[in-house]
Write a protein that binds this DNA or RNA. Structure first.
Length: 549
RNA sequence: GGCCCCAUCGUCUAGGCCGGUCCAGGACACCGGGUUUUCAACCCGGCGACAGGGGUUCGAAUCCCCUUGGGGCUACCA
């Protein structure tokens, strides 16, 4: 176990509550803790804070684990890998917490309470009416075991609060410096809920101590919890608390803290903006009841993720990417995500920005965390993705691409590795994997299933003799015994020369004919990969469709 | 409302602790031009910031105070 007298090895942790997919803010927190552990040769622990039965979803832990793995963040102790401090699920550590609760109770540093949520709410309302903050008033005489029996008999809820000591608590934060709090303004907080489970503020202290956590990097939203946790730490005689580093918060482009609520909110807005849409239809699409949908629109509840996504897709609404999987599904690669995330609220101090993971680890310095909040700028993320797409070894890219094709259920997934590698190569400069997929999809659909882009048809085929040029190209192509990139290029160039036009005038009609769009990989590769037969078939289809013969 | 945090280009940031080398550097975005078989990529150039007001000082982006603005927390959530 951890021996604090020997060289103080760094131990950090990421402690998510399993309420759904890992969101980008959580990923950033995990990343910084992981980076610090890697940099110092320390240990990184994954601990699941599932003490709120109401909020946990059964699949969430797995989702979080998958997302962390996708990002490349691995843990030395935690779910799946185990470790000396198991179990790593707080819901399975009840006896441990009970032991410390008993200790606090015996010392008179914790006490029982019997107010219901409603009573508490009332008191809070009164305080608010007087424009004062609500602070729980500790009774002059603390309830005894007898009172507890009585309350239980009467069916009252029983909770336990920590008796905050009087005075000022100063926390020495790595990023904020010294921050002091007057405990009178904090009040006694609940450490054991009426269902017997510990609250976050309690369980976290016990586990951080038991697991030998030396550094806690977390969002600024936890700053106000820290004095309480530190007081608990002292009351329990745990020695020196961990070093805290409260990072800046990531702000969304629409205002406040980046939150997973943004996706449903965006959808809700979109539905309300189109009152003509029949709700029953939307409910069907989402596979939910109309009443569920109505509750959602009223702001009362949120349907599950697949329902949200299905409805958004149907309406053509782009949901903001908030969860790590959202970025995965939109064609971002983890190397870029990690790089970008690391530079939100942290910098190397020199001008280095785009760098591989190992370099990130090497130059990580916890003292260089920024104090001010930062806005999540998707445009910059795209730029990082573009750079990493260029930098990454081809085999790794191939693996990412295959995973992406699978998750979006693309027809391109049928291609073999060799083909996929070639697609990646001819799409050099792409910004996302989605770009590559969109560009190359035409190779994997049937000849008669090409969807023509209206603008492309107008601009390229119906203007400047586009169709006539296409016919010329068709005939030349038909004459070629075998299609090679070079052969196609020579043919197209000489055709352009003969007609005294630029290459674009011959290449674009061909491009639109075989892909339906003006956007594709380089035309020579495109035709060669599609093959002679399919290319001719598509040209003929196009000619027939737009000239009537 | 209360408590706490923060404040440099549109955005991410460097610089600030140890005041002069900063009429503020880089990156992304944007605008203009170039390259080009499309998109993307690429090349060149441009626009663009120390929130405001008081101090301290020979001198302040850098130190102090106030104002304003932004953010967080204010649960039997984490």
């Amino acid at each position: 176990m951890v021996d604090s007298t020997s060289s103080p090895r760094v131990v950090t942790r990421f402690a998510p509550s399993p309420t759904g997919y890992l969101h980008i803010g959580g990923a950033r927190t995990a990343l910084f803790n992981w980076l610090l552990a890697k940099k110092t040769g320390g240990k990184f622990i994954l601990r699941i804070e599932d003490t709120d039965l109401k909020r946990n979803t059964p699949t969430a832990t797995q989702q979080v684990i998958d997302d962390l793995k996708w990002l490349g963040i691995t843990w030395d102790e935690g779910p799946e890998v185990g470790g000396p401090n198991a179990p790593y699920f707080q819901s399975q550590r009840r006896e441990t917490y009970d032991k410390y609760i008993k200790q606090l109770l015996d010392m008179g540093r914790a006490y029982y309470c019997f107010e219901s949520t409603e009573e508490l709410g009332q008191l809070r309302g009164q305080a608010e009416a007087q424009k004062k903050g609500f602070i729980y008033q500790r009774p002059a005489e603390l309830p005894t075991q007898k009172d507890v029996e009585k309350a239980k008999a009467e069916g009252k809820p029983v909770t336990i609060r920590f008796a905050m000591p009087e005075g000022t608590i100063v926390i020495n934060d790595i990023v904020r410096g010294e921050v002091s709090f007057n405990t009178a303004e904090l009040g006694d907080f609940i450490i054991i809920k009426s269902d017997g489970f510990p609250t976050y503020n309690f369980a976290c202290v016990i586990d951080d101590h038991l697991m030998g956590i030396t550094h806690v990097i977390r969002g600024q939203e936890h700053l106000m919890n820290t004095p309480g946790q530190q007081a608990l730490w002292q009351a329990l005689g745990f020695g020196n608390p961990p070093q805290y580093a409260h990072m800046s918060v990531t702000i969304s482009e629409s205002g406040g803290k980046l939150s997973k609520r943004e996706r449903p909110q965006t959808l809700r807005k979109a539905i309300k903006a189109r009152p003509e849409i029949y709700l029953g239809k939307l409910a069907d699409i989402g596979g939910i009841g109309t009443d569920v949908l109505k509750d959602f629109l009223a702001g009362d509840s949120v349907p599950d993720v697949p329902a949200i996504e299905a409805i958004a897709k149907y309406l053509g609404v782009e949901l903001p990417e908030i969860n790590v999987v959202d970025f995965f599904k939109n064609g971002y690669i983890p190397e870029a995500m990690v790089n970008f995330l690391a530079l939100l609220g942290w910098s190397t101090g020199d001008t280095r920005e785009v760098m591989p993971l190992q370099e990130l680890i090497d130059c990580f310095d916890i003292t260089r965390l920024t104090k001010s909040n930062s806005l999540f700028d998707r445009g910059k993320l795209v730029a990082y993705n573009t750079e990493h797409l260029k930098m990454l070894p081809k085999e790794k890219l191939l693996a990412h691409f295959k995973a992406y094709l699978k998750v979006v259920d693309s027809p391109v997934a049928k291609a073999d590795n060799e083909t996929l590698l070639r697609l990646i190569k001819i799409c050099e400069g792409a910004r996302t994997l989605a770009d590559i997929e969109h560009k190359c999809k035409f190779l994997f659909v049937a000849d008669d299933k090409i969807e023509f882009d209206e603008k492309a048809v107008q601009k390229v085929l119906l203007k400047d003799n586009g169709l006539a040029m296409l016919k010329l190209v068709r005939d030349k192509l038909a004459e070629m015994p075998e299609l090679t990139e070079q052969g196609i290029e020579d043919m197209l160039r000489s055709l352009a020369n003969q007609n005294n036009v630029g290459l674009g005038k011959v290449a674009q009609p061909l491009r639109v004919a075989i892909t339906g769009s003006t956007i594709s990989p380089p035309i020579f590769d495109s035709v060669q990969m599609l093959g002679k037969q399919n290319t001719l078939a598509r040209i003929d289809n196009t000619l027939k469709k737009f000239t009537g013969k």
